[in-house]
Design a binder for these strands. Structure first.
Length: 490
RNA sequence: GGUGUCGUAGCCAAGUGGUUAGGCAACGGUCUGCAAAACCGUGAACGCCGGUUCGAGUCCGGCCGACACCUCCA
C-alpha cells in the first residue's frame, strides 16, 4: 500500500516513493546520552518506530533505519568532567583523561537508553545502525574541509564556524522554518556559548579545545585546530556515511526544525553538494497534565519514574499511538488508565480468537469492513493511528469472536499479527494460563467463605471476602465454586 | 516583537461543508444472595462574535484563551 506522509518542507501531505528501488532510508535524531530519557524523548523515538514499522509492514518496503547516539556535546562534557555532581558510582572511577570519563559516562546512559526503548517495544534488530558521534570524527573533519574549501566556513579563535549569511545569499536557508533574523526575541541570548563568531546566526562546525575537555587533533589545510565537533555536524556526517545522500526520511521533534535541521541542510548542501533527504517528518511535543514538562513544575518524568509508579511501558506505547503524532500530546494519569483498559479490551478479543468456535453466525465479512484494509488505510494516511484504532474498535464491536466461524477467526489472527507488527502492543497468541501462587491461607479463607455462602450467611461471606481483599486477593464466584485473583494496583 | 500550532461532551481524542468517529468514565439493563468480570443499551460537544453558503465543528474576518519555536531542547 502506498504511504502518504506530511513533509515539513512542503507543509503538505505527499505520496511517499522511495528514492532507490524499494529501499527506505530513514535517519532519526537520537538521544544525547547525558541523562535518562524522559517521556517527551520517548514520543520522538516511538514516532520513528511507528514510521519505520509502517514502511516495512504497510508499505512492504525494505527499511534501513539509523538512529544516532550523541555522545559528545556541552552537557556530556560538563557532566562527565572531573568532580561533576552528575557522576554516579555505577559509572566507575573517574580518571585524569577527559575522553575516558566522557566515554564511561555516555556508555552508562546509552545502556539505560537501550533498555528503555526495548521496554517500549522498539526492537534492536530493526536498526541498521546506531552510530556514535565520536566514532566519526575523521569523517566530520573531512566534511568541514569540504565546507571550508567551498567558502562557507571560517576560522575564529581556533574554532570553525559556518557562515550562514554567506550561505543564505543563495536563498537556501530557512526551508524548514521561516526565521526573521531582524526580529529575534528581545533580550534573547545572542551567543550562548563562549566562542567568537562573526555573526550571531553562524554556528560552530568545530569547537576549539578548552582546558580539561576531551579533544581530537584536526589539521585544516595546515592549521592545527585541536577541538571537538559541533552538534549539527555529526548528523550530517553520519547520514552521508551510513545512508548516502539524498536519503528518504529524516525524523525528529518539532523543536529541532530550527536550528538543528536547518543547519544540517546547509552543511550537507554546502559540503557534499546534496540536500540530505527528501522528507522531513517532525513529531509534536508532549505536555503533562496540560503543562509543558519541566523540572521546575515537578511534572518531568523519565520512563523509569513511570515504571516505578507501576505503569506498564507498553501502555505508554499504546497511549502515544492513540494520538496523532503531529498534534500536541497531553500525558495524563487518567489517560494512561484509559489506554491500558482499551488496550486490554483488544487483547481479550485476540485471545478469544484462539478459542474453538461454536455455532458461528458470521461466515464472512464484507470487503468494506475488512479489518486489515481499514487499519492500514489509516496508517498510510500520514500515520493516522487514532483513526486506525477507531476502525479497530468499530470492527471489534461489530464482530464479536463467538459469532465468527473458525476460518474467519484464523484469518483475523493473521491480520492481527500484521497489525501488531506495527503496534507491538499485544500478544497474538492463545491466552497463557495464569500461573499464580495463591497462599494456603487465602485458599482456606476462600473455602470458609464458600461454606458461609452456601449456608446463606452472607454477612460472614462478605466479611471474609473483604478480609481476602485486604490481603491483596480477589475472590470471584463461579458456577462450581470460586476463583482467586491477585488484586491489581490499577 | 517575529513565525507557527491549537481551542470538540466529565476526561482523552478523530473529524477532508451535507446521514452516529473511537476510547475511558457515567447511567440503565442481563447475570449474581450482593459483587467482580463480561455482554447489551443510553445520553451529552464543537471558545466568543460576525460573515460566506440551501447547509459551517469544518471556509473567511475579528476577539478571547492556551501552547511552541526564535542559536545546541524530542
Amino acid at each position: 500500500m502506498k504511504i502518504n506522509l506530511y513533509n515539513s518542507l512542503s507543509r503538505k501531505i505527499e505520496e511517499f516513493e522511495p528514492l532507490k528501488n524499494d529501499l527506505v532510508r530513514i535517519y532519526s535524531c537520537g538521544p544525547t546520552v547525558y541523562n535518562y530519557s524522559h517521556i517527551g524523548n520517548m514520543r520522538a523515538f516511538l514516532f520513528a518506530d511507528l514510521l519505520q514499522r509502517t514502511m516495512r509492514t504497510t508499505g512492504k518496503y525494505n527499511v534501513r533505519w539509523v538512529m544516532n547516539i550523541t555522545d559528545i556535546d556541552d552537557k556530556t562534557i560538563r557532566d562527565s568532567s572531573k568532580g561533576s555532581q552528575s557522576w554516579l558510582p555505577q559509572m566507575g572511577e573517574q580518571t585524569d583523561l577527559p575522553l575516558d570519563n566522557l566515554k564511561k559516562f555516555t556508555k552508562f546512559y546509552e545502556q539505560a537508553f537501550l533498555e528503555d526503548i526495548a521496554k517500549l517495544g522498539i526492537e534492536q534488530n530493526h536498526f541498521y545502525s546506531m552510530p556514535h558521534a565520536t566514532d566519526f570524527i575523521p569523517q566530520m573533519q573531512e566534511l568541514i574541509r569540504k565546507i571550508y574549501n567551498n567558502g562557507y566556513a571560517y576560522i575564529s579563535e581556533n574554532s570553525v564556524y559556518f557562515n550562514v549569511s554567506r550561505w543564505a545569499e543563495n536563498g537556501e536557508y530557512g526551508k524548514l522554518k521561516k526565521i526573521d533574523f531582524d526580529n529575534f526575541k528581545k533580550g534573547a541570548r545572542i551567543d550562548s556559548d563562549q566562542y567568537e563568531k562573526e555573526d550571531a546566526n553562524d554556528f560552530a562546525l568545530w569547537k576549539a579545545k578548552k582546558e580539561g575537555e576531551p579533544y581530537w587533533e584536526f589539521d585544516l589545510f595546515g592549521q592545527m585546530l585541536p577541538g571537538r565537533p559541533g552538534w549539527h555536524l555529526e548528523c550530517s556526517t553520519m547520514e552521508y556515511e551510513l545512508l548516502g545522500l539524498p536519503f528518504d526520511i529524516h525524523t525528529g521533534g518539532v523543536d529541532l526544525k530550527f536550528p538543528h535541521h536547518e543547519d544540517e541542510i546547509a552543511q550537507s548542501k554546502a559540503g557534499y553538494g546534496f540536500d540530505p533527504n527528501r522528507f522531513w517528518c517532525h513529531n509534536e511535543f508532549l505536555e503533562v497534565e496540560g503543562e509543558k514538562m519541566s523540572k521546575s513544575l515537578g511534572n518531568f518524568f523519565t520512563l523509569r519514574d513511570l515504571i516505578a509508579k507501576n505503569i506498564d511501558p507498553i501502555d505508554i506505547r499504546y497511549l502515544m499511538f492513540s494520538v496523532h503524532y503531529r498534534t500536541k500530546f497531553n500525558f495524563t494519569n487518567d489517560g494512561i488508565i484509559a489506554a491500558r483498559k482499551a488496550r486490554l479490551k483488544v487483547q481479550e478479543y485476540i485471545y478469544e480468537l484462539f478459542n474453538a468456535s461454536e455455532n458461528p453466525i458470521i461466515n464472512e465479512i464484507p470487503p468494506e469492513d475488512d479489518l486489515l484494509n481499514r487499519f492500514f488505510a489509516e496508517l498510510s494516511n500520514d500515520l493516522h493511528t487514532p483513526k486506525a484504532l477507531a476502525n479497530l474498535f468499530d470492527f471489534i464491536n461489530n464482530y464479536p469472536p463467538q459469532n465468527l466461524s473458525a476460518s474467519l477467526k484464523s484469518t483475523l489472527i493473521d491480520e492481527f499479527k500484521q497489525i501488531n507488527a506495527i503496534f507491538n502492543t499485544w500478544q497474538v497468541n492463545k491466552k497463557p494460563d495464569e500461573v499464580i501462587e495463591i497462599p494456603d491461607e487465602i485458599i482456606k479463607l476462600a473455602e470458609e467463605r464458600l461454606l458461609a455462602k452456601k449456608q446463606k450467611n452472607f454477612t460472614k461471606s462478605d466479611e471474609l471476602r473483604q478480609a481476602i481483599s485486604n490481603l491483596g486477593y480477589l475472590v470471584i464466584d463461579t458456577k462450581t465454586g470460586f476463583e482467586i485473583k491477585v488484586k491489581k494496583n490499577d
